[in-house]
Amino acid sequence: MSLTGDRRFGKTSVRHLVEDELRSRGCRVAAVSAQRQTLVDVVEAIIRELRKGLWARP
């Protein structure tokens, strides 16, 4: 899921609701900020989070 928009529009609140719901269903959740220097940095951060989640329990 990707949430975009201006500041103070409730993106963080929506993200927390979605994450809580997914976790309650037994899903693993990885959250990564896209505020990075390059797209490559964003992708690498996502990969790191996904790798961490592969071995973690939900």
Rank of each mutant, 00 (worst) to 15 (best):
R23K: 15
K52Y: 06
A30L: 04
S24K: 12
V32S: 01
G10L: 02
L54K: 12
R48M: 08
R25Q: 13
E44G: 01
S2F: 15
Q37D: 12
K11V: 05
V40T: 13
L39V: 08
A34T: 13
R8Q: 15
V40S: 11
S24W: 02
V32E: 01
A45S: 12
R57H: 09
R28N: 08
L54F: 13
V40M: 07
V14N: 08
K11I: 01
V18K: 01
A56C: 05
L17E: 13
E49P: 00
R25D: 05
L3Q: 05
S33N: 10
A56E: 13
C27Q: 11
Q35N: 15
D41Q: 00
I46H: 02
G5T: 04
I47M: 10
Q37P: 07
S24I: 03
L50T: 06
S24N: 11
R23L: 11
M1S: 12
T12S: 15
I46P: 00
K11H: 09
S13M: 08
V18E: 01
T4A: 12
R15F: 04
L22P: 03
I47F: 06
V42C: 04
V14F: 11
D20T: 15
V43G: 03
S2K: 09
L39F: 10
S13C: 07
K11A: 09
S33C: 08
E44T: 05
L22T: 00
S2H: 13
Q37R: 14
S24E: 10
R8C: 09
T4V: 15
S24P: 00
D6R: 14
P58C: 06
L54D: 10
L17N: 11
G10Y: 01
A34V: 05
L39W: 10
H16M: 08
G10S: 05
R36C: 09
V29A: 00
T12C: 02
P58R: 09
V42P: 02
K11W: 08
T38L: 03
R36F: 02
T12I: 06
P58H: 04
G53L: 15
A45N: 03
V32D: 00
E19P: 03
L39S: 12
V42H: 04
R51K: 11
T38F: 06
D20Y: 08
R25C: 09
H16R: 14
W55M: 10
I46S: 03
A45I: 00
K11L: 10
A30W: 01
R51L: 15
G26N: 04
V18I: 15
R36H: 07
R57K: 11
G53Y: 04
C27I: 06
R57I: 04
L22G: 02
A31F: 07
I47Q: 13
Q37C: 05
M1E: 06
S2E: 10
R51H: 15
E21M: 07
A34D: 02
G53M: 12
W55V: 14
D6A: 14
I47L: 13
S13K: 09
R36V: 07
R15W: 00
G5M: 09
T4S: 14
L54V: 10
A31P: 01
R23S: 07
L22Q: 00
R57S: 13
G26A: 05
T12A: 06
